[in-house]
Amino acid sequence: MSTFGFFCDTSACSGCKTCQVACKDKNNLEPGIRFRRVYEVAGANWNKTEEGAWEHDIVAYNLSIGCNHCEDPACVKACPTKAMHAESDGMILVDSKICIGCRYCEWACPYGSPQYNEQKGIMQKCDFCRDYILEGKQPACVASCPMRALEFGQIGQLIEKHGDNRTIYPMPDPITKPALFIRKHPGARFARKLNASIINREEVRNEK
């Protein structure tokens, strides 16, 4: 079971993507590979009022996701070599020395977290900036967030502080028990009704 987790305050996230850039910088990632991705969710509609006028509804918010280090990780179950594995502290890591680059973990993960490095022929992913944590520092994404929308910590403490909500529209059902806790943007309750969707798919998906 995962010990650590992330918290994302979608009501505070401005979508500046500093977390994404800090992660790429810290991990020296190739173009196209994003351990952390900022999803832009937006939707809108026009409604006719009783007086016959037209008014618009609109919803827009951002969701920053790295690896959720799930308690029931689909990637670990799928990996044929056990390169993708759970450490004793619950962190989900990939052992690049035994990864075969089959990309099955990429298919199995509902959050698109494992990223394929075409040059190396292996999978890579967020490791909570393990080296930073061992030094007593925060992960690069959390430390860089100018809005303080991201937090990292012990799961119990995060739940106590922010509650145990692990999803927001349009995230998939949390069947893998992600260690990601979310404060919902106020507009999220209208998102389904407004057919909101991720509007920066081309940006966040690693199509290589």
Binding site: K77, A78, C79, T81, A83, I100, G101, C102, E118, I122
Partner: peptide, 25 residues
């Protein structure tokens, strides 16, 4: 040819317990 790192292919039988890919191989 589908594998990014075929050199490790013999290890792909390591997770028959949960991985359908391991079972397929």
């Amino acid at each position: 040819l589908h594998l990014g790192n075929p050199a490790n292919a013999p290890r792909s039988l390591s997770n028959i317990g949960t991985s359908w890919l391991s079972r397929e191989i």
